[in-house]
């Protein structure tokens, strides 16, 4: 349910008041950007998607009925747009592969380098980069639940509202995400010394 200030902001925006849109952007831009950048793991793409999220908010505020919190609605749009952008990128990657077959070097530009989240503390940067790599390998809904919990700091109830599921489903998703990540990290760390040795040779 909406609180009074949120309800007022939305009502003003629905009436076409520009200042309320600026207020909404100011209030929620970090939340949206942080969620998106954690999913797409690319700062330039995240900037672009964040803009698209607020454009959609502006264009479809008329259809917002206030059944969920404004932040919940924004999280949903941000997650949907981020996942959509990932799918588009995968399609481009496939297209680049075809270009590669015909002699053009399209593959390289779609291969992202290791991602460093700007909010991670300096001493954790290296480990966090490995964790973000592992996050890309686990199922989508587990990744979203883990991101919302660990990076956005939301509790199970809030995640359940965003993902349109139950509290217990979120609990299970988080447990499965942790176990999938452990598996993926184990593979990474067991292969890593071999890679190092082969590079040294």
């Amino acid at each position: 349910m909406l609180n009074q200030s949120e309800a007022e902001l939305i009502k003003k925006l629905q009436q076409g008041e520009q200042q309320s849109f600026a207020d909404i952007v100011g209030l929620y831009q970090d939340m949206v950007y942080n969620t998106v950048v954690s999913i797409v793991q690319n700062e330039l793409d995240a900037e672009d998607i964040t803009q698209e999220v607020f454009l959609q908010v502006y264009q479809s505020i008329g259809s917002f009925k206030g059944e969920a919190k404004l932040s919940t609605w924004l999280y949903r749009i941000a997650i949907a747009k981020a996942l959509d952008s990932e799918k588009k990128k995968k399609r481009k990657k496939r297209f680049a592969f075809i270009q590669n077959l015909f002699g053009e070097h399209g593959e390289e530009q779609y291969n992202p380098v290791e991602f460093n989240h700007p909010g991670v503390q300096l001493e954790n940067k290296e480990n966090a980069a490995v964790l973000f790599k592992a996050l890309k390998q686990i199922p989508e809904n587990q990744r979203i639940a883990f991101t919302l919990n660990k990076i956005e700091g939301l509790n199970n109830q809030e995640i359940a509202a965003i993902m349109n599921t139950s509290f217990y489903a979120v609990e299970s998703l988080l447990a499965r995400a942790k176990s999938s990540l452990k598996k993926s990290l184990k593979n990474y760390y067991l292969q890593e010394p071999n890679k190092k040795n082969s590079h040294e040779k």
């Binding site: 700007p118 966090a128 490995v130 592992a134 990076i151 990540l181």
Partner: peptide
């Protein structure tokens, strides 16, 4: 260590 690397993470802000 990797799993705990996101503890105390701060929100990233756009440009």
């Amino acid at each position: 260590d990797a799993l705990n690397s996101l503890n105390h993470i701060e929100r990233a802000a756009p440009a």
